Simulated assay, not measured.
Amino acid sequence: MRDTEICRKLLQLEGPWNVDRVKVDVEARELHAYLVAGKSWFGRPAFVRSKMRWRHVNVGAYKTFIHATIPEDHDQPLESAFLGEAGSDFTRGLAQRVLECLDAGLGYRQVCNLLEIDVYLAWQIRHAIGEGRLNQEDTRDDQKAEMTPPRQIPPTGDPVWFRLLESDETIDIRLLGLRLLLARSRQGFSELSSNDAKIMRVNTVRRFFIKHEKQLDHEISQLVGLRRDSQAGAEA
Rank of each mutant, 00 (worst) to 15 (best):
I125Y: 00
W123Y: 11
S88E: 12
L176V: 13
D141P: 02
R207W: 08
L178Y: 01
R8F: 01
L226E: 11
G225N: 14
Q136L: 09
S221F: 07
I171A: 00
H67R: 11
D103Y: 09
R2F: 11
R97L: 10
G157E: 11
A197D: 08
M200D: 13
N58E: 08
V26Y: 12
R184L: 07
R179W: 05
D89W: 12
L35P: 02
G43K: 05
E166V: 05
E137V: 15
V224W: 10
H32A: 04
Q152L: 13
Q152G: 13
D25E: 05
K63W: 00
K39D: 15
L35E: 00
T4D: 02
K23L: 09
L164T: 06
V24A: 01
T170Y: 14
D89H: 15
S221P: 02
C112I: 04
R53C: 14
C101K: 14
A145Y: 10
T4G: 01
A46P: 03
L181P: 01
N203E: 15
D217F: 10
N58D: 12
F162P: 01
L83G: 04
W54Q: 04
I129T: 04
H32E: 03
D172E: 08
D138E: 03
R8P: 01
I117R: 00
L78I: 03
R207F: 06
